[in-house]
Simulated scan of single mutants.
Amino acid sequence: MVHSDPKLDIEEAAQGFAAIGSEARLQVVLTLVRAGRAGLSVGDILARTGMAASTLAHHLRFLVAAGLIEQEKVGRSVINRADFSRLEALAGYILAQCCADVVPPLALEKEGTDA
């Protein structure tokens, strides 16, 4: 799944943050981020995380539904990749709000002189 518009609305952001809100799912996402764009097979993720196969399958489904990872069938393997544009949009969602309500000191001084 390719996201043409990486901007998120609040509902999509909440879903993304919820998806990485468990330690196990965050571990899977970080493992895939470290692996880069080549991604990893399910077996490789199992080896790197030490999770049980059924547990990993559950977490992968959750992360795919949230749009944070992509899966591609290659032969008999399923390759999992972090969706870097989606993860970047999720990280940027919070940071884009930085200082939005801060009044610049110069504006405060001007307000004081108008009274």
Rank of each mutant, 00 (worst) to 15 (best):
T31A: 11
R34D: 13
E11F: 13
G39A: 11
G16F: 08
L32Y: 00
V42I: 09
S22H: 08
G50F: 08
L56M: 06
F84W: 07
R48W: 00
Q15I: 14
I45N: 01
E11L: 15
E72Q: 14
T113A: 13
A91M: 10
Q15M: 13
A14D: 05
H59Q: 11
V74I: 07
N80S: 12
F84G: 11
S22I: 00
R76M: 14
L90E: 00
A107C: 03
L46P: 00
V33G: 07
G75Q: 09
L30H: 05
G16I: 06
H59N: 15
C98W: 14
A53K: 10
M51A: 09
M51Y: 12
E12D: 15
R37C: 01
A107H: 06
A100N: 01
A53S: 13
G16R: 07
Q15T: 14
G50E: 08
L40D: 03
D83K: 02
L56C: 02
A18P: 02
D83G: 03
A24E: 07
G43W: 04
T113P: 01
R25L: 03
D5E: 14
A100T: 07
I20R: 13
H59R: 08
C99Y: 08
M51K: 05
E88R: 01
L68G: 05
R48D: 08
E111C: 06
S77G: 10
Q71A: 14
T31K: 05
A19R: 04
S22Q: 09
V2W: 03
D101M: 01
D5G: 09
R37D: 01
D9H: 12
V2N: 02
Q97P: 00
